[in-house]
Structure formats: C-alpha cells, structure tokens
Design a protein around this nucleic acid. Sequence first.
DNA 1: AACTGTGAAGGGTTTCACAGCC
DNA 2: GGCTGTGAAACCCTTCACAGTT
Lengths: 209, 209
Amino acid sequence: MAVGRGLARRLAKYLRCVAALREEGLDAVSSWMLGEYTGVNPAQVRRDLAGLGIGGTRGVGYETEEVFGTLRRVLGLDRVHDVVLVGAGRLGTAVAGSELLVKRGFRVAQLFDRDPAKIGRRVGNLTVRDVRELDGGERMPEIGIIAVPSQNAQEVADRLVASGVVVIVNYTDALLHVPAGVQVHDVDPSSQLMHTLYYLTRSGEEIPA
Amino acid sequence: MAVGRGLARRLAKYLRCVAALREEGLDAVSSWMLGEYTGVNPAQVRRDLAGLGIGGTRGVGYETEEVFGTLRRVLGLDRVHDVVLVGAGRLGTAVAGSELLVKRGFRVAQLFDRDPAKIGRRVGNLTVRDVRELDGGERMPEIGIIAVPSQNAQEVADRLVASGVVVIVNYTDALLHVPAGVQVHDVDPSSQLMHTLYYLTRSGEEIPA
DNA sequence: AACTGTGAAGGGTTTCACAGCC
DNA sequence: GGCTGTGAAACCCTTCACAGTT
C-alpha cells in the first residue's frame, strides 16, 4: 500500500477527534461526524478507516473504542517515544514543561543548550547539558526539537542529524538543510502565518481544505 | 486561477530561501537551487514562478530581487499585520517576545489572559488585558494566536471568532471547531509528531514529500 | 553549457453516487 | 432512516522530457 502523506495527517486528526468523543462517552461515531470535526469528506473518512481494517456497522457507525485503539496503534502512540530538546530558553522550557507531549506519549529525555549559565541547571527533572556533547557519540532519540535562536538552528540541526535524529520539529524561522530521509516540521508562527496570508489577501475565495 | 493549497506553502518556502540567498548577494537564482533548498522538484518551481508572472532568463535563472519582491507582495508580507495573542504564560510571553513574527511583518497588537494576577502586567510594550474584554465589541486583528491551556482553547477560539479573527494559530492540542471560513493551524509539537510517527514506525519506507 | 517554459503522461487523492445492510 | 462500503469519474498535482533561448 503506497501510503499517501495526507493520510497520516488525517489519521492524527481522527485520533484527536475520536479521543475527545470517547471521553464524552460515545461508543459509536459516524463518518459524517468525524468528517465534520476534522474538515474531511465523509467518503474519505470511510475510505481511510476501511484501509486500516476498521469496519463499521451500517446504520450505526464505527465503534469508538476500536477506532481509537487502532489509530493509536497505527500511529505508534501506544509506545513512549523519547525526544531530544535543544534550547533551554523561554520557549524551550515552555516546551519541556508542557503536558502536551506527555499526553501523546512523548518524553523529553535530553535537554541541551550552549549557554554556560544554563548548563547544569535543572528544568523539571532534566539537567541542561552542553550542546557540544550532542555529537553522535551517544545513542540518541530519533526525534529532535529545535528551540534556539534562528542563527544557530542549522548548526543544531547538523548535530541532531549526526546523532541519529530523523525527525526535527523546528521552532525557528531558519530554512533547514538536511539530508534526504530526515523530516523537518516548521512550526514557528510566522511560517504558519505566511502561507495563510496568501489566502487572507485574497479574502472571499474558497480555501482548499 | 483555482489556487492549490500546496502552492501557498511552497511560496513561503521559496521566500525564505530567496531571502537568504539575497542576503548573500546572489542576484540570480535557478529553479534547481530553489528546489534543492526547499525540497521541491525544479519543474514545479518553474511552474509556480511562471504562474506568478515571474519570468526567468534561460541559461541564467531568475532575478533574485524580482522573485523576492513578487513573493513578498503575493504573500502579503509587504504590509504589517496585526495579531492578537491570548495567553500570557511561558509560551505566550515567548511568542510575544519573539523576533520571528516581527521579522515577517507581524505585530502582536493585543495580549489577553484570564488570570487576574497577570492582567495589567506589562509584557514587552504590551499590557495584558482581561480575556473577557475579547467579546467582539471592539475592532480586532484578523489573526489570532492561542497559547492557553488546552481546556480553555475552544472558549478562546469562540471569542476570537466572535471578534472577527479569521486565522487562528493554535498552540494547544485541542481540536478546535470553528465556522467555515476560519482557518486553524495546529502547531503544538505533538500534533506535528503524531503523523510523523506513522512513517517512523514504518522506517525504511519512502516518505512522500 | 546551462537553464527556462511547457506539452503530455502519470499517479494519487477527493468526490459523487448508489447499492447493500442494520 | 441512517450509515457503510466501493466502483467510477473527476480533479489536481507532480514529474518527465525536450524544444527553445541565452
């Protein structure tokens, strides 16, 4: 099955949606409802679920519990994934202290910074280490988060890649250059807003979902 | 021209790339180079630029200055855009104090929180206001950023929408339900990582760009 | 030699529409 | 009546390939 990229993003949305509905006690969910909340066409929802082997009951919908469980397993969220975080400034500590990552099964296992004043300090239950120790000599998580000033982002990315990271969440506005096989997710607000403006300045037009 | 959504994202990438090359003093840039740095196929780059009316010179490439200027204009970055930020916690203040937004022409014009201990305080050159004043009675920016605890996110989103916001950058993991016409960008790290895991757990497979 | 501009092919995704089932 | 499951069509996007230009 040549898995499209859009699918993975949709699955994540379904999961968030079904997780919320599950907490509300619903034990059946329809493709229409999932579509409504996630902005996906109901037919597409059915296709996606069928593709995962999740079958529904006609006239009723899908079993909430089954959808939830299968999505978690398929997305790999039934295990804990370690994450290495670089940058112990305001943003970095906000991320490190956030419950969001923990809720989804991510654990910040390492915290680095270059500032000697920060190295050795404790943030939560982590000790800030010198970023120069991030050199590939040590077994590291596959996931890295960059929360440093933009001008140091590429250098940090290089170190992360060298130490085995294959997924980078980039909080800076630097355009990172990484080898093929390494994924970068840009999450700085200006990146998000930039391509949104494109539609804002053309207000009135339909926005593709 | 029925504008695809992928295009807007690519344009933002081209701009970041060409901005960097411009600062290095290059006055011509090829589709190959733009593609290399942004991970886009060169043919696609040429298509995109041609679609914007940017013509290149065969054998040479595109004029850096023209590409830069046109992209900025098309993306609406030649004007300053006001932003309303809700949440004055660690994350909120990190965002408010960030240079990233300013660099791209965004200005945090309003800062709200619900915590009485924070209301009235100054963050940078902003005064934290009571989130209850965010009720649509006042002319507000079209762009909002949510940096509050997840459980309050939907309520804040409702207030933002009521006050005229049409683009929301959501730092929480809540799945926001908004009227058609309002765009939500989820930037919490777990959202980004969730669909990435899908590929991580299938490591070795090709990842669609 | 280098690079643009574009017809044409290819692939994947989204949507419609409706038969089948509860 | 409500909803799933799926052929089939439409659509969009992407990529190849190459003629054309400097």
